[in-house]
Amino acid sequence: MDIRLGYNIPYFTHKRSTTELFPAITAQACAAESAGFDTVTVSDHLYQPPLIGEPDEPVLEAYTTLAALAPATRSVRLSAMVTGNTYRNPALLAKIVTTLDVVSGGRAVLGIGAGWFELEHRGYGYDFGTTADRAGRLDEALRIIVPMLRGQRPTMHGTWYRAENALNEPRLRDDLPVLIGGGGERRTFGCAARYADHLNIICNPSELPRKLRALRARCAEAGRDPETLEISFATPMMIDEDGNRARKQLRDVLLRSGVDIAGLPDAERAAATDRFFVGSPDEVAEQLEAKVLAHGVRRLMVNLLANGHERQVIELAGGTLAPLVRGR
């Protein structure tokens, strides 16, 4: 599969009318493709999540959006980042992503995770359950989805899901990639070791060495060579030619979620900002080299949380990051 640099569209509007909404998203995807990103993803949410915006801000359904982006793009892979497993029956999800693959000429990726945003579960009537419940659902779902993507006809009577000789035609291929996203060191990483082609790790950069050790342990338990599993790092980023302007963007984003880092002691401010890569292009590149690439992770999935709707920011991010991951 060899995803190296992904661009996520985390929000679906920026003070635009509804009629302007999808053309703006299309422009983002095309700008990312031109800027050197090899994958374009959209968030799979029903309400806008924290850090991104208010719950009642516009959100489009992920797979309808991806299918509409297919004819507007040429080469980028298309995926949800990541599909909330709890929102769709797993056999139907296999059919949906396979249809996206047909529509896009073989460019679909199944990005999937256990789900985490309780508010949208309550609002739409989906069972949220415990963390263990959602991890169990994900494992069962993958035992249906992955065989269907490979041309098999699974039958399963599980705790959460059932399938009876489930068909999945037409398909372009039997190796449609499966990407699992998350940071759960036992259940999520275990699912990645058993079922996935790619794991997108979500954590603070300071936690990454421990996460990689846990992943190696899960691969050993599954009898899998960890070198056969692609690994990327979820990279929330504010980048600007003026590093101080990027740092102000981070302060504003955190303030929207109720965190005023200006008034925090140094240790608490460092903890609140640990997850983010912020500054000028040189500063961001230096942070990524030290915090991610130095640990052997060579693939990045980028969230431009503050201004990812601006073409020049997409171009700046692509121009900065593509050389870091190219050829590694």
Rank of each mutant, 00 (worst) to 15 (best):
M1V: 06
M1T: 07
N8T: 15
K15Q: 14
E20D: 06
L21T: 15
F22M: 04
C30F: 03
E33P: 00
D38Q: 02
V40W: 12
V42R: 11
I52C: 06
P55W: 11
E57K: 06
P58S: 02
E61R: 10
E61C: 04
A62P: 06
Y63R: 05
T64R: 11
A67L: 12
A68E: 02
P71F: 10
A80Q: 02
P90E: 03
L92P: 01
L93D: 03
V97Y: 13
T98R: 00
S104I: 01
G105T: 05
G106C: 05
R107H: 05
I112V: 13
E118C: 10
E118M: 12
H121W: 05
Y124C: 03
D127M: 10
D127H: 15
G129R: 00
A132V: 13
A135N: 10
D139M: 03
A141I: 02
L142P: 00
L142R: 00
R143G: 03
I144K: 04
I144T: 04
R153P: 09
H157P: 01
A163T: 07
P170L: 09
P170T: 02
R173Y: 13
R173P: 06
D174A: 15
D174R: 15
D175A: 11
G181R: 14
G183H: 07
R187E: 09
F189Y: 05
G190F: 04
A192G: 05
R194L: 13
I201C: 07
S206W: 12
S206K: 14
L208Q: 01
R213K: 15
A217N: 11
R218G: 09
R218T: 14
C219R: 05
C219S: 03
A220Y: 06
A222E: 09
G223W: 13
G223H: 12
D225I: 09
E227W: 09
S232Y: 10
S232P: 07
A234Y: 15
P236M: 03
P236K: 07
P236D: 08
M238E: 07
E241L: 06
D242L: 07
N244E: 14
R245M: 02
A246G: 01
D252Q: 13
V253S: 13
L255M: 08
D260M: 02
I261S: 00
I261D: 08
A262N: 12
L264K: 10
D266A: 15
D266R: 15
E268G: 02
E268D: 14
A271R: 14
G279Y: 12
P281N: 07
V284H: 15
H295M: 01
R299M: 07
N303V: 11
L304N: 11
L305E: 11
A306T: 08
N307T: 14
N307V: 11
V313R: 15
V313N: 13
V313C: 07
E315A: 05
E315Y: 11
G318P: 05
A322C: 07
R328P: 05
R328V: 01
